[in-house]
């Protein structure tokens, strides 16, 4: 790399040009693995787009009904749809509140910054087990005890604890260690450390996670009703079983508007937080 090589008089020894290395085996393996996985998965679910053409007339028939939604469901505030929507919103609010509150405590137990090693390891693996079950599975078990909004609230609460605790614990892991050291040096207890240095430091992140799960909860509580856990989902199943696409279309419109409104609101709030 010396400047001598720059003067490239003819006959002077040329620097050897290195040969192009083969692509990394990991890259090849990754691409081949992805292709193989796709082929196997496609075979497992009988992948075929032929029905799109065969069944197209069927879909257009349905869409014809869909483009003429049952407006009365939307315009009448005392319609079934709005009652169910209010229930969905209430489920989401309560589950977000309770779940997030518990999650803050769990997060403190789930970070190596705030908990002793044994505690945080146990907490972490329990949390990952809780998260591995879909909210749906919790709802299915809880509706066995009682139907209505209560199992929906409980299922979402557990779901929220899983997500918020995980994200918050990760934020706690990343807390600036400087102030913590100062507190340790001043002889603070675990609880004092948490209250004075950790919680204030992660509060903006935590609040943003809470808003995030609230968004998720609105969507999820729409769906949970499908197994009898209250809210709009129950209506979706009812209209689906009756093939009442005009009313389903009304449900779509309302969910659409509500979800987008809540997204915008939470985006606005989150931008102000961080």
């Amino acid at each position: 790399m010396s400047l001598a090589t720059l003067e490239r008089a003819d006959g002077a020894p040329k620097q050897v040009r290195p040969a192009k290395p083969p692509p990394s085996p990991l890259l090849i393996g990754g691409v081949l693995g992805a292709v193989a996985a796709t082929v196997v998965a496609g075979w497992a679910i009988d992948f075929s787009l032929a029905p799109v053409i065969e069944q197209w007339p069927m879909l257009t028939m349905i869409l014809e009904e869909v483009v003429h939604p049952e407006w009365a469901e939307i315009t009448d505030p005392s319609s079934r749809l709005w009652i169910a929507m209010k229930e969905t919103a209430a489920i989401a609010v309560i589950a977000t509140f309770v779940g997030s509150l518990i999650a803050l405590g769990v997060a403190l137990l789930g970070s190596k910054v705030s908990a002793p090693p044994a505690v945080f390891r146990v907490t972490k693996s329990v949390m990952s087990m809780i998260r591995s079950l879909p909210d749906m599975a919790y709802a299915l078990v809880f509706v066995a005890v009682v139907t209505g909004p209560l199992p929906g609230i409980l299922a979402l609460t557990i779901f929220n604890i899983g997500i918020v605790a995980k994200l918050t614990a990760e934020s706690i892991d990343a807390v600036d260690p400087g102030p913590l050291e100062a507190l340790d040096a001043a002889g603070a207890t675990r609880w004092q450390r948490a209250r004075v240095a950790i919680v204030p430091a992660v509060l903006p992140n935590y609040a943003s996670y809470v808003l995030y799960v609230f968004e998720l909860n609105i969507r999820a509580s729409v769906v949970l009703g499908a197994v009898g856990a209250g809210g709009v989902g129950q209506l979706i199943m009812l209209y689906f079983n009756r093939a009442d696409y005009a009313r389903l279309a009304a449900v779509v419109i309302v969910i659409f508007v509500v979800v987008i409104a809540i997204d915008l609101l939470s985006q606005f709030l989150r931008r102000r937080l961080v």
Binding site: M1, L3, T5, Q15, V16
Partner: peptide, 14 residues
């Protein structure tokens, strides 16, 4: 390659 040779860094090509 010639451009790399001119600035003397051809061995880092890849």
């Amino acid at each position: 390659f010639e451009a790399l040779e001119r600035v003397g860094i051809v061995e880092k090509a890849w």
